[in-house]
Design a protein around this nucleic acid. Structure first.
Length: 145
DNA sequence: ATTCTCACA
DNA sequence: TGTGAGTA
């Protein structure tokens, strides 16, 4: 019977080489399975395929998916996320080898500046929310206590 | 459970 | 940039 799941994932929770299906990785990174699928379709985070054409994700993909999840609320577009993942990949894979290592470090520094800037913007929005809550409090029942 | 396509915002 | 529905 080949109605179970992917290449080897039976119902005993023992997928091949610790690989996950869309539903599994989606749950683990708290993204909808539709979104994970979308990222695969868009080539942001390509999935491997089981013999039955089911998407399979390894620990490596899980790590990248988590990075994507962190980039998302910062407002990075899919294209920007693609660049970030590529940069991170290049940097970790090439160590201090590649001829363009210098440029990589420069891009990494630029990324840090960018992330910091977006972070600051979020802090401002958070402050705005806090201010709003503070203005609502005294209007609520018992708020003037 | 997962696949894909198409529509809708 | 996603999501919901319908399908196999």
């Amino acid at each position: 019977m080949e109605t179970a799941a992917p290449g080897a994932a039976a119902q005993d929770g023992s997928p091949p080489a610790g690989l996950m299906t869309v539903g599994e990785i989606a749950e683990r990174v708290a993204l909808s399975h539709r979104t994970v699928r979308y990222y695969d379709d868009e080539g942001l985070l390509p999935a491997r395929r089981s013999p039955g054409n089911y998407r399979l994700y390894g620990e490596d993909a899980l790590a990248k998916m988590l990075t994507i999840r962190r980039l998302k609320p910062l407002g990075f577009t899919l294209d920007e996320m693609r660049e970030v993942l590529a940069l991170l990949d290049a940097v970790s894979a090439e160590g201090a080898a590649g001829p363009d290592h210098e440029e990589r470090l420069q891009q990494l520094a630029a990324l840090e500046v960018d992330v910091r800037r977006r972070r600051d913007k979020l802090v401002e929005q958070l402050q705005g929310a806090d201010d709003l809550l503070a203005s609502l409090a005294p209007l609520l029942p018992g708020g003037g206590a």
